[in-house]
């Protein structure tokens, strides 16, 4: 089938959920499989790096890469794919904004390795052995990819054409994206393939949001029983919906959980966390510092709350190490 456009999938630092979401296309996957030729999909088919290297540059129409970039191998592959693909789509929150893996940017590489291989309660490692990048065995050199100092979004490593947001992107959005690709009418480069307004727009509980929130307390999901009809912010739960791009059709809220922001900010916002912080804090009730602080104590992990999916793409990107 020489006429069918070639499509690829690749995963970097991710949980695999994005791959799963492709399968979630259900019967539509047949439509996709009919329309395109999947030339590269390590999770489902057997491919080697050399197979890709053998392809002609630009011969793939589009590759969807999910996962953040945190090792040298992922970087290398991303670069390779970039060369081979006409269009690269950052697929899912991790590729789009760093995702949950990028919360690692709160720590140094050394801190992480130390914890992983020495301090974690389940580890017994008195010799403090660490994985080595190179290891000679029987005159053969075995190498491991290097973990980088920073978890990066895909577009911090290679040029990205489009973004499909979400953790994971919904089948509906994927299907729309594939159809767009097939149509040949491409949106402007850099477009996030989801509506450019906040989630409240499509939230089923929008009507129940009061005008005046005046937060006196915040609750984490395990601390209270939610009213499953009422706006979560109105119940004192930090919902990222107002600062998060629509498109998921309020999946989490329908599951009676607050939005945690996986779709990222709208195009007008540079830092999703800062924006929701600004919005929520402006609406805190007390005026005195001490009282304000008492309310804020209800948010014990502001980074994990406001930057759950986007630390790598936030303005500061990582914890600053002062000399």
């Amino acid at each position: 089938m020489p006429d069918k456009p070639k499509i690829g999938f690749y995963w970097c630092a991710s949980c695999g959920g994005c791959e799963e979401s492709v399968v979630d296309l259900a019967e539509d996957i047949v439509m996709v499989a009919d329309a395109v030729d999947i030339v590269f999909w390590p999770v489902a088919m057997d491919f080697k790096k050399a197979d890709v290297e053998a392809m002609e540059d630009g011969s793939i129409l589009a590759t969807m890469i999910n996962g953040a970039i945190r090792t040298s191998e992922q970087e290398e592959m991303a670069r390779l794919i970039r060369r081979k693909s006409k269009i690269v789509i950052a697929y899912g929150s991790c590729a789009h904004m760093g995702g949950i893996p990028s919360l690692a940017n709160e720590f140094t590489r050394e801190q992480i390795l130390e914890y992983m291989y020495q301090e974690a309660p389940s580890v017994v490692n008195p010799e403090k052995t660490r994985p080595m990048l190179e290891f000679k065995h029987n005159s053969q050199t075995v190498t491991l990819p290097e973990i980088r100092n920073l978890v990066r979004t895909l577009d911090q490593v290679i040029d990205v054409d489009y973004y499909l947001p979400g953790c994971p992107p919904t089948p509906k959005l994927l299907k729309a994206a594939v159809l767009t690709l097939l149509s040949g009418e491409y949106p402007p480069k850099g477009t996030v393939l989801s509506p450019d307004e906040a989630l409240c727009e499509e939230c089923p509980r929008k009507e129940s949001k009061p005008t005046d929130l005046a937060f006196k307390h915040f609750y984490r999901p395990h601390q209270i029983l939610f009213d499953n009809k009422k706006c979560l912010l109105a119940q004192g739960v930090v919902c990222m919906g107002p600062a998060t791009r629509a498109g998921c059709e309020a999946l989490c809220i329908n599951g009676n959980m607050p939005c945690s922001g996986c779709f990222g900010p709208t195009s007008r916002v540079r830092d999703q966390g800062a924006k929701i912080l600004s919005s929520i804090c402006s609406n805190i009730d007390p005026k005195e510092e001490i009282a304000i602080d008492a309310v804020l104590d209800d948010i014990p992990d502001p980074i994990g709350t406001f930057y759950r999916y986007g630390l790598a793409s936030s303005l500061l990107r990582k914890k600053v190490m002062e000399d």
Partner: peptide
């Protein structure tokens, strides 16, 4: 208007009550 999601975060912040919620357009 085309960007506003109607989240109402801004409404109580205005000291002059200049912001209102249009029930028609939400």
């Amino acid at each position: 208007e085309s960007f506003c999601s109607g989240c109402k975060s801004c409404i109580p912040l205005c000291p002059y009550s200049a912001i209102s919620f249009n029930e028609g357009t939400k």
